[in-house]
Each structure stands twice: as C-alpha cells, then as structure tokens.
Simulated scan of single mutants.
Amino acid sequence: MDGACWIALLKPIMWLFFEPGLSPGEIIGGWEAKPHSRSYMAHLAIQCKEKTYICGGFLVSEKFVLMAAHCYGDKITVYLGAHNIKQQEQSQQKIPVRSRIPHPKYNRKTHKNDIMLLQLEHKAELNEQVGLILLPLAHQRVQPGTVCSVAGWGRTDALSKVLPDTLQEVDLKVLDNEACLKYPGGMYRNYNTRTMMCVGDPKEHKASFRGDSGGPLVCGKTAQSVVTWGPDNGSPPRVYAKVSTFIPWIQAMMRRLQP
C-alpha cells in the first residue's frame, strides 16, 4: 500500500475521505487538558501529496502507535510528549514512521475495520511526558452508560476552521448499539455491532469531530476504541472502532514486526 493516500483532496475543507454528510473526529464541548496528563497521546502530521493534515493516535508500546486507518497518507510523522503543538516543547519527541499497517479488511466506504498500526523508526523514550496506555482484553465489552473520555487537537467548533494550539478533552457516554442503528436518515446504515461502538449522548453538545480521528476513547485507564466517523455537523452520537475486537490482529502484527 506504499504510495497510496486515502486523505481526501476533493474539497479543501474536508480533512479525510468520507461520504457526504460524514466527517472524521475533533473535540466539541470540551476543555483544555492538563499538560501531559495524557502521556500516551500522539499528534500525527500526515503528508498527502502536497498537503499536510493532522490526526491523533496513541502509544501502545515503545515502537507502535495505534490510530485510524482512514488517516493513511504518503508520509506520517509522530510527535509524542506534546501539549501545545504550535511550540517546540522540550518534552516533544519527533519520530518518523517506518511502517504503516492498516487492517487488511479496512473498507473506506463502509468505515469497517478503521484501525491502523504505525511502527516507529526507533523506540520512544518513556518518561513523565511520554507513556503507554493499556489495551483491553480481546472481545472485552464496555457497558452502555459508561462515561469515558476522548482528547485531541481537532477543531472545537463545527463552524470554525481554527484548530486549538493545546490538547483538548471531553467526557462522553457510551451508548447502546441501538442509538446508532436507529439513527435518523440511515446515517449509520453500515454500523457493525461487533467492531464499532456508539458514543456520545445526543442530549449533550459534546463530541469528537474533525482533526481528532485516530485518538483513543479512554474508559478508566484503557483505550477501548478509536475515533473514526460521524455526522458532518458534529452532533453525537458518533462511531468509534472497538479496539477489543482487533486485539488478536494487533498482537500478531506487533510480534511479526518486532519479535
């Protein structure tokens, strides 16, 4: 897949490859995170032909970052230990990506299996500002009603194109699958209960949105899902890739690339 670029260039205002009416992740209704309180967060600069875009990701081992497959570009650079991405913080580690491994059954039209591993060119230096996050057990389930959190450097308003300098975060509720299966207009007609999670109370103006794709939904101390897609207006609920479904694949890829 080297040389492929899945980031959309059709419309300048669209960040990633999505059907009309859908958009990738960002933070709406949140607040600035405490600096380096989420030491696992990765800020990703993605080169697609002559344009550069951003996504989120999270460090799961010293040499691997997990993120969304739709963030695949020609070149990806990982920044760890970042809080203010507009400043050259001493805590930041800039690491090139050696290998991009999207899930082999990722489908950009249906958004199924929207998950990807990045193998870093060299090990991250773990310290107070750069750390790992736990992954769930294989096929572990998060109960509806559980309040989790998501963070990223994406837009904080659906109508604004301005990106925040600092990491933002918000608390979101995990919903029953029916909330997405019965979403008006068939928006989530491709929703898969085995591989996806429905997240965000429609009564609250809080959601992930553009620029945040690939970041983790954290429940307790575990990365339970990956920010993927949702309505273009930023309204909840939105769909996340369920990490527990992919644990066997993640472990197999990490063993193969780094015995």
Rank of each mutant, 00 (worst) to 15 (best):
M1C: 11
M1E: 10
A4S: 10
C5Y: 00
W6L: 14
A8K: 09
A8C: 11
L9D: 06
L10S: 12
I13K: 11
M14S: 09
W15N: 14
F18D: 11
G21E: 09
L22F: 15
P24D: 15
E26F: 14
I28P: 03
W31G: 09
H36E: 03
R38Y: 10
S39N: 15
H43L: 13
A45F: 07
I46L: 15
I46F: 04
C48V: 03
E50W: 10
Y53M: 11
I54S: 12
G57F: 08
G57N: 08
G57V: 05
F58K: 00
S61H: 14
E62A: 13
V65E: 06
M67E: 08
H70R: 12
Y72V: 02
D74H: 13
D74I: 00
K75G: 03
Y79G: 00
I85H: 01
K86R: 15
K86E: 11
Q88F: 07
I95F: 03
I101L: 11
P102N: 01
P104I: 01
Y106W: 06
Y106H: 08
K112C: 04
I115P: 03
M116H: 01
L117K: 06
L117F: 07
L118F: 02
Q119H: 02
E121Y: 10
N127L: 07
E128N: 14
L134F: 05
L134V: 05
L137Q: 14
L137E: 14
H139C: 06
R141C: 02
Q143W: 02
V147I: 14
S149G: 15
S149H: 15
G152T: 08
G154F: 13
R155P: 06
T156R: 14
T156H: 12
D157H: 12
D157C: 13
D157N: 14
S160D: 13
P164R: 09
T166Q: 14
V170A: 14
D171F: 08
L175I: 06
L175S: 12
L175Q: 14
D176R: 11
C180P: 04
Y183L: 09
G185K: 07
R189A: 10
R189L: 09
N190Y: 14
R194N: 13
M197C: 12
C198K: 13
G200E: 05
K203N: 10
E204W: 08
H205W: 04
K206D: 02
F209M: 01
R210F: 04
R210D: 01
G211R: 06
D212G: 10
S213H: 06
G214K: 04
G215L: 03
P216G: 02
L217H: 02
C219F: 02
T222S: 13
A223I: 08
A223G: 12
V226C: 05
T228D: 01
T228H: 09
P236F: 07
Y240H: 15
V243D: 07
T245M: 13
P248I: 04
W249L: 05
W249D: 10
A252K: 15
A252D: 13
M253F: 00
R255I: 01
R256D: 03
P259T: 01
